[in-house]
Design a binder for these strands. Structure first.
Lengths: 118, 118
DNA sequence: CAGCATCCCCCAAGATACTG
DNA sequence: CAGTATCTTGGGGGATGCTG
Protein backbone atom coordinates (compact mmCIF):
# COMPACT_ATOMS: atom_id res chain seq x y z
CA UNK A 1 0.00 0.00 0.00
CA UNK A 2 1.30 3.42 -0.97
CA UNK A 3 -0.98 5.51 1.16
CA UNK A 4 -1.12 7.15 4.54
CA UNK A 5 -1.72 4.70 7.39
CA UNK A 6 -3.73 7.03 9.55
CA UNK A 7 -7.51 6.55 9.74
CA UNK A 8 -7.85 7.37 13.40
CA UNK A 9 -7.84 7.83 16.27
CA UNK A 10 -9.30 11.29 15.92
CA UNK A 11 -9.46 14.27 18.22
CA UNK A 12 -12.76 15.57 16.85
CA UNK A 13 -15.13 15.31 13.90
CA UNK A 14 -13.30 17.79 11.71
CA UNK A 15 -10.13 15.85 12.31
CA UNK A 16 -11.85 12.64 11.13
CA UNK A 17 -13.29 14.34 8.05
CA UNK A 18 -10.04 16.05 7.09
CA UNK A 19 -8.19 12.75 7.24
CA UNK A 20 -10.37 11.56 4.39
CA UNK A 21 -10.35 14.78 2.38
CA UNK A 22 -6.65 15.58 2.67
CA UNK A 23 -4.87 15.04 -0.61
CA UNK A 24 -4.33 17.69 -3.21
CA UNK A 25 -7.12 16.57 -5.56
CA UNK A 26 -9.58 14.68 -3.40
CA UNK A 27 -12.15 17.40 -2.88
CA UNK A 28 -12.01 18.16 -6.61
CA UNK A 29 -12.58 14.50 -7.43
CA UNK A 30 -15.66 14.54 -5.19
CA UNK A 31 -16.88 17.65 -6.94
CA UNK A 32 -16.30 16.19 -10.39
CA UNK A 33 -18.04 12.91 -9.58
CA UNK A 34 -20.97 14.69 -7.98
CA UNK A 35 -21.44 16.93 -11.00
CA UNK A 36 -21.35 14.15 -13.59
CA UNK A 37 -22.70 11.23 -11.58
CA UNK A 38 -20.29 8.82 -13.23
CA UNK A 39 -16.90 9.39 -14.80
CA UNK A 40 -14.31 7.27 -16.57
CA UNK A 41 -10.65 7.47 -15.59
CA UNK A 42 -9.73 9.51 -18.64
CA UNK A 43 -12.65 11.88 -18.17
CA UNK A 44 -11.56 12.55 -14.60
CA UNK A 45 -8.03 13.18 -15.77
CA UNK A 46 -9.19 15.70 -18.35
CA UNK A 47 -11.52 17.29 -15.79
CA UNK A 48 -8.64 17.88 -13.36
CA UNK A 49 -6.03 19.83 -15.34
CA UNK A 50 -2.57 19.24 -13.96
CA UNK A 51 -3.17 15.99 -12.09
CA UNK A 52 -0.79 13.14 -12.81
CA UNK A 53 -2.06 9.64 -13.48
CA UNK A 54 -0.19 8.43 -10.43
CA UNK A 55 -1.84 10.87 -8.02
CA UNK A 56 -5.26 10.39 -9.58
CA UNK A 57 -5.24 6.61 -9.24
CA UNK A 58 -3.69 6.82 -5.77
CA UNK A 59 -6.36 9.19 -4.52
CA UNK A 60 -9.12 7.15 -6.13
CA UNK A 61 -7.87 3.98 -4.45
CA UNK A 62 -7.73 5.64 -1.05
CA UNK A 63 -11.20 7.09 -1.50
CA UNK A 64 -12.43 3.67 -2.53
CA UNK A 65 -10.93 2.17 0.62
CA UNK A 66 -12.53 4.92 2.66
CA UNK A 67 -15.91 4.02 1.20
CA UNK A 68 -16.40 7.29 -0.67
CA UNK A 69 -16.03 6.09 -4.23
CA UNK A 70 -17.31 3.08 -6.14
CA UNK A 71 -15.18 1.56 -8.89
CA UNK A 72 -16.89 -0.40 -11.64
CA UNK A 73 -14.75 -2.33 -14.11
CA UNK A 74 -16.13 -3.30 -17.51
CA UNK A 75 -14.07 -6.08 -19.04
CA UNK A 76 -14.04 -4.82 -22.58
CA UNK A 77 -11.46 -3.98 -25.21
CA UNK A 78 -10.41 -1.26 -24.83
CA UNK A 79 -10.89 -1.44 -21.05
CA UNK A 80 -13.44 0.81 -19.37
CA UNK A 81 -13.57 1.77 -15.70
CA UNK A 82 -16.22 4.01 -14.24
CA UNK A 83 -16.07 5.85 -10.95
CA UNK A 84 -19.02 7.16 -8.98
CA UNK A 85 -19.82 8.39 -5.49
CA UNK A 86 -21.12 6.04 -2.83
CA UNK A 87 -23.74 7.09 -0.32
CA UNK A 88 -20.99 8.22 2.06
CA UNK A 89 -19.24 10.10 -0.70
CA UNK A 90 -22.43 11.95 -1.52
CA UNK A 91 -23.09 12.96 2.08
CA UNK A 92 -19.48 14.08 2.43
CA UNK A 93 -19.86 16.24 -0.64
CA UNK A 94 -23.02 17.75 0.85
CA UNK A 95 -21.14 18.47 4.06
CA UNK A 96 -18.46 20.25 2.03
CA UNK A 97 -20.89 22.58 0.30
CA UNK A 98 -20.92 25.34 2.96
CA UNK A 99 -17.14 25.28 2.98
CA UNK A 100 -17.13 25.67 -0.79
CA UNK A 101 -19.49 28.61 -0.54
CA UNK A 102 -17.23 30.23 2.03
CA UNK A 103 -14.23 29.69 -0.24
CA UNK A 104 -16.02 31.25 -3.18
CA UNK A 105 -16.75 34.37 -1.15
CA UNK A 106 -13.15 34.49 -0.04
CA UNK A 107 -11.99 34.26 -3.65
CA UNK A 108 -14.24 37.14 -4.62
CA UNK A 109 -12.96 39.20 -1.73
CA UNK A 110 -9.36 38.54 -2.74
CA UNK A 111 -10.13 39.41 -6.35
CA UNK A 112 -11.77 42.66 -5.25
CA UNK A 113 -8.74 43.61 -3.15
CA UNK A 114 -6.43 42.83 -6.03
CA UNK A 115 -8.61 45.02 -8.21
CA UNK A 116 -7.91 48.02 -6.00
CA UNK A 117 -4.17 47.51 -6.41
CA UNK A 118 -3.96 46.97 -10.16
CA UNK B 1 8.35 34.00 5.59
CA UNK B 2 8.31 30.28 6.39
CA UNK B 3 4.92 29.48 4.98
CA UNK B 4 3.26 28.32 1.81
CA UNK B 5 3.15 31.02 -0.87
CA UNK B 6 -0.06 29.84 -2.47
CA UNK B 7 -3.22 31.87 -1.82
CA UNK B 8 -4.65 31.50 -5.28
CA UNK B 9 -5.49 31.20 -8.06
CA UNK B 10 -8.16 28.68 -7.21
CA UNK B 11 -10.07 26.16 -9.27
CA UNK B 12 -13.20 26.32 -7.13
CA UNK B 13 -14.54 27.38 -3.74
CA UNK B 14 -13.49 24.26 -1.89
CA UNK B 15 -10.00 24.71 -3.27
CA UNK B 16 -9.90 28.27 -1.92
CA UNK B 17 -11.20 27.20 1.49
CA UNK B 18 -8.88 24.23 1.80
CA UNK B 19 -5.89 26.44 1.10
CA UNK B 20 -6.66 28.31 4.28
CA UNK B 21 -7.57 25.30 6.42
CA UNK B 22 -4.74 23.00 5.37
CA UNK B 23 -2.22 22.58 8.14
CA UNK B 24 -2.24 19.85 10.74
CA UNK B 25 -3.67 21.95 13.55
CA UNK B 26 -5.54 24.80 11.89
CA UNK B 27 -9.06 23.46 12.12
CA UNK B 28 -8.42 22.56 15.74
CA UNK B 29 -7.19 26.08 16.45
CA UNK B 30 -10.41 27.45 14.96
CA UNK B 31 -12.40 25.07 17.11
CA UNK B 32 -10.49 26.02 20.25
CA UNK B 33 -10.81 29.76 19.65
CA UNK B 34 -14.49 29.44 18.85
CA UNK B 35 -15.18 27.51 22.04
CA UNK B 36 -13.35 29.87 24.36
CA UNK B 37 -13.72 33.17 22.53
CA UNK B 38 -10.24 34.27 23.46
CA UNK B 39 -7.13 32.28 24.29
CA UNK B 40 -3.58 33.00 25.29
CA UNK B 41 -0.66 31.33 23.53
CA UNK B 42 -0.01 28.96 26.42
CA UNK B 43 -3.67 28.09 26.77
CA UNK B 44 -3.84 27.15 23.10
CA UNK B 45 -0.75 25.03 23.48
CA UNK B 46 -2.24 23.15 26.40
CA UNK B 47 -5.52 22.79 24.54
CA UNK B 48 -3.81 21.14 21.58
CA UNK B 49 -1.90 18.20 23.05
CA UNK B 50 1.05 17.31 20.90
CA UNK B 51 1.48 20.57 19.02
CA UNK B 52 4.95 22.11 19.00
CA UNK B 53 5.47 25.80 19.69
CA UNK B 54 6.93 26.19 16.23
CA UNK B 55 3.90 24.81 14.43
CA UNK B 56 1.46 26.63 16.69
CA UNK B 57 3.00 30.03 16.09
CA UNK B 58 3.48 29.30 12.39
CA UNK B 59 -0.15 28.36 11.92
CA UNK B 60 -1.35 31.31 13.98
CA UNK B 61 0.70 33.72 11.86
CA UNK B 62 -0.65 32.30 8.63
CA UNK B 63 -4.21 32.45 9.92
CA UNK B 64 -3.60 36.03 11.00
CA UNK B 65 -2.37 36.87 7.52
CA UNK B 66 -5.40 35.15 6.05
CA UNK B 67 -7.66 37.34 8.17
CA UNK B 68 -9.04 34.50 10.29
CA UNK B 69 -7.39 35.29 13.59
CA UNK B 70 -6.83 38.49 15.55
CA UNK B 71 -3.69 38.85 17.64
CA UNK B 72 -3.74 41.23 20.57
CA UNK B 73 -0.50 42.00 22.38
CA UNK B 74 -0.53 43.35 25.94
CA UNK B 75 2.79 44.95 26.79
CA UNK B 76 3.14 43.66 30.31
CA UNK B 77 5.67 41.70 32.32
CA UNK B 78 5.38 38.81 31.87
CA UNK B 79 4.14 39.31 28.31
CA UNK B 80 0.58 38.38 27.40
CA UNK B 81 -0.79 37.69 23.92
CA UNK B 82 -4.39 36.85 23.23
CA UNK B 83 -5.79 35.26 20.12
CA UNK B 84 -9.38 35.38 18.94
CA UNK B 85 -11.40 34.76 15.79
CA UNK B 86 -12.17 37.55 13.37
CA UNK B 87 -15.48 37.79 11.56
CA UNK B 88 -14.08 35.72 8.71
CA UNK B 89 -12.71 33.14 11.12
CA UNK B 90 -16.10 32.78 12.71
CA UNK B 91 -17.92 32.30 9.42
CA UNK B 92 -15.28 29.79 8.33
CA UNK B 93 -15.84 27.86 11.52
CA UNK B 94 -19.57 27.87 10.86
CA UNK B 95 -18.94 26.58 7.35
CA UNK B 96 -16.86 23.75 8.81
CA UNK B 97 -19.60 22.57 11.16
CA UNK B 98 -21.39 20.21 8.71
CA UNK B 99 -18.04 18.67 7.84
CA UNK B 100 -17.35 18.12 11.52
CA UNK B 101 -20.72 16.46 11.95
CA UNK B 102 -19.99 14.17 9.02
CA UNK B 103 -16.63 13.27 10.52
CA UNK B 104 -18.20 12.46 13.85
CA UNK B 105 -20.61 10.06 12.19
CA UNK B 106 -17.75 8.48 10.31
CA UNK B 107 -15.83 8.01 13.56
CA UNK B 108 -18.80 6.31 15.14
CA UNK B 109 -19.19 4.06 12.12
CA UNK B 110 -15.53 3.05 12.28
CA UNK B 111 -15.79 2.42 16.01
CA UNK B 112 -18.84 0.23 15.46
CA UNK B 113 -17.05 -1.80 12.79
CA UNK B 114 -14.07 -2.23 15.05
CA UNK B 115 -16.43 -3.41 17.77
CA UNK B 116 -17.60 -6.29 15.57
CA UNK B 117 -14.01 -7.44 15.16
CA UNK B 118 -12.82 -7.29 18.75
C1' DC C 1 5.38 33.90 29.01
C1' DA C 2 5.65 33.96 24.29
C1' DG C 3 8.12 33.32 21.17
C1' DC C 4 12.68 32.74 17.52
C1' DA C 5 16.54 29.92 15.27
C1' DT C 6 18.34 25.52 13.55
C1' DC C 7 18.78 21.13 12.16
C1' DC C 8 16.69 17.05 10.43
C1' DC C 9 13.42 13.63 8.58
C1' DC C 10 9.78 11.84 6.11
C1' DC C 11 6.49 11.48 2.68
C1' DA C 12 3.07 13.65 -0.51
C1' DA C 13 3.50 14.80 -4.89
C1' DG C 14 5.91 15.40 -9.50
C1' DA C 15 8.43 13.35 -13.58
C1' DT C 16 9.38 9.73 -16.56
C1' DA C 17 8.99 5.37 -18.67
C1' DC C 18 6.63 1.04 -19.43
C1' DT C 19 2.32 -2.56 -19.90
C1' DG C 20 -2.12 -5.75 -20.11
C1' DC D 1 -7.68 2.95 -22.24
C1' DA D 2 -6.36 2.45 -17.69
C1' DG D 3 -3.32 1.79 -15.29
C1' DT D 4 2.20 0.18 -12.90
C1' DA D 5 6.92 0.91 -11.50
C1' DT D 6 10.70 3.66 -10.09
C1' DC D 7 13.28 7.65 -9.00
C1' DT D 8 13.49 12.23 -7.18
C1' DT D 9 12.33 16.37 -4.52
C1' DG D 10 10.10 20.15 -1.98
C1' DG D 11 8.57 21.57 2.16
C1' DG D 12 5.49 20.42 6.09
C1' DG D 13 6.31 19.21 10.39
C1' DG D 14 9.07 17.35 14.59
C1' DA D 15 12.92 18.08 18.15
C1' DT D 16 15.93 20.83 20.58
C1' DG D 17 17.97 24.90 22.42
C1' DC D 18 18.02 29.97 23.16
C1' DT D 19 15.93 34.90 24.29
C1' DG D 20 13.40 39.61 25.29
Amino acid sequence: MTSNPRRGPYICGIDAAMDVVTGKWKSLILWELDNHGTRRFGELKRGLPGVSEKMLIQHLREMEQDGLVHREVYREVPPRVEYSLTEHGTTLNDALRPLGAWGTKRSQRLAAEHELVS
